[in-house]
């Protein structure tokens, strides 16, 4: 699909973020090798891709868990309880902000306002928005994702 689009494009660099997203989707994150693969696809130098990959929030140059939790820490969510929710998540997952659970399931990252201030406090997991959050709702969401993961991962 993407490679067709690249072929058809007069300016392949316009697809570079899409390509990196797709490659990231496939490998989980943009390792050096993944980045080089993406670079080859769009015919750009790996450095040029790294210049972008390290710029954007949603491109990960380090390994992340299967579910990347982006907890909004901007002003409305902050006012509506970001800090206690963050502490709750950290405790619940046994990790600090910026870390990944040992089972590789969850990575916890802060994020700027995700545009769901009307449903604050809010968070984004794999680009799906949740809010307004409470500790209980968070527990529920984590549970659902855990069982979803268990179902789809052959043990």
């Amino acid at each position: 699909m993407l490679s067709q689009q690249i072929q058809a494009s007069k300016h392949p660099p316009e697809l570079v973020v899409d390509v990196m997203m797709a490659v990231q989707e496939h490998y989980g994150y943009l390792s050096d090798e993944a980045l080089e693969e993406a670079a080859a696809m769009v015919g750009m130098a790996p450095t040029k891709l790294d210049e972008l990959a390290t710029f954007y929030t949603f491109l990960y140059r380090e390994p992340v868990g299967r579910y990347v939790i982006h907890l909004c820490d901007s002003v409305i969510c902050w006012m509506d309880g970001y800090e206690p929710l963050r502490d709750h998540l950290c405790k619940k997952l046994g990790i600090q902000m910026g870390e990944t659970t040992p089972d590789g399931l969850f990575t916890l990252l802060p994020v700027c306002c995700i545009g769901y201030c009307d449903r604050s406090p809010a968070m984004l997991i794999n680009k799906k928005a949740y809010g307004p959050l409470t500790s209980e709702k968070i527990d529920e969401i984590l549970e659902t994702l855990r069982s979803e993961a268990a179902e789809t991962t052959p043990s």
Binding site: M44, A45, T47, K48, D50, E51, T54, F55
Partner: peptide, 8 residues
């Protein structure tokens, strides 16, 4: 193109 500017 092997030297560039990374990060933000």
């Amino acid at each position: 193109e092997d030297l560039g500017v990374m990060q933000i």
